[in-house]
């Protein structure tokens, strides 16, 4: 016989845990502070205690930078094919479908036209959630097209990078996107149109070695990992631990490869200043 204090009917069971809606609180991985999510969002997802920059997706950047959170998106429906019939260890189509499902995006970059403090801009924002922000044919093509639009309309271009590099599943076609984007930027440069590159965590590989490092002005978010080779590969090559702070935004600032490390809460203002320099 069941003990009298054991409940037999499921319906009268109360929840064991206190109901906390998903994502109401977040713990800062750097200082351990427990932060109310809405508070975090108000601070552009920067820990107000230690300035740790949480990774945010493309939506957040668009809302943060575009006046009124409004923009006109280009080529939103563009999707990758599977030119190499890549199927190891799972078919590339399935991987793409899963990424699309997960992010609600069709690819790892979004390109828009908008205004920043009343000034016309073209903006490309990469999204790390989509196969590590990797650059395949679509990322390369969308970046190339937004550069072409900037050339045509003479709008300044801003690219926010977040990428593990070129996408392996499209092999050499991904590699060539580096030239596709860099060659367009050369034309933009010759036409005297500004390009501001913003490096976020992480920016590595083929993206670093193409458009990310070619900004007229390069900003980086605090603590962002930025490099060509990834830390794991370097560790393997040299057979020892990497120095503290190696390949961080602050490291690159010191070595002369970025213009400024900019707190995300000041990013719009910093871009604004460069744009005003152009428009003035």
């Amino acid at each position: 016989m069941a003990k009298w204090y054991e409940r037999t009917e499921k319906s009268i069971l109360s929840d064991d845990k206190k109901e906390i809606p998903e994502g109401v609180w977040k713990k800062c991985p750097q200082c351990g502070e427990i932060i109310y999510y809405k508070e975090l969002a108000r601070h552009q997802h920067v820990c107000f205690k230690c300035n740790y920059h949480f990774r945010i997706n493309s939506d957040h950047y668009l809302v943060m930078l575009c006046d009124g959170g409004t923009y006109k998106e280009y080529d939103a429906g563009m999707r990758s094919g599977n030119p190499l019939d890549f199927s190891d260890p799972i078919p590339y189509e399935e991987q793409l479908a899963a990424a699309i499902q997960k992010t609600g995006l069709n690819e790892a970059v979004r390109t828009v036209e908008s205004k920043l403090n009343g000034m016309s801009i073209h903006l490309a924002v990469m999204d790390f959630r989509f196969i590590g922000g990797s650059m395949g044919s679509v990322v390369g093509e969308k970046i190339a097209r937004i550069i072409d639009r900037s050339l045509e309309k003479k709008f300044p271009l801003i690219i926010i990078s977040a990428s593990g590099g070129a996408r392996m599943q499209e092999g050499v076609l991904s590699l060539m996107q580096m030239v596709k984007t860099a060659s367009r930027l050369a034309r933009l440069h010759d036409a005297g149109i500004p390009y501001i590159s913003v490096l976020t965590h992480p920016t590595t590989g083929g993206v670093t070695a193409s458009f990310a490092m070619l900004g007229d002005v390069i900003f980086a978010e605090p603590g962002a990992l930025i490099g060509f080779a990834g830390p794991r590969v370097i560790r393997q090559t040299i057979g020892e631990e990497l120095p503290e702070g190696f390949q961080t935004a602050e490291f690159l600032l010191k070595k002369g490869f970025v213009d400024a490390v900019v707190d995300r809460r000041n990013l719009k203002k910093s871009i604004d200043e460069v744009l005003k320099f152009y428009y003035a």
């Binding site: 030239v179 050369a186 034309r187 670093t208 193409s210 490099g227 040299i238 190696f246 002369g256």
Partner: peptide
């Protein structure tokens, strides 16, 4: 491959390659 070492990163391996793509294209 380009050398993945400390000095190479410190002196801008990514920038050096990016710059060549940019300049060679024109």
């Amino acid at each position: 491959g380009a050398y993945p070492g400390l000095g190479a990163e410190e002196r801008g391996q990514g920038e050096a390659i990016a710059r060549n793509l940019f300049e060679m294209s024109r």
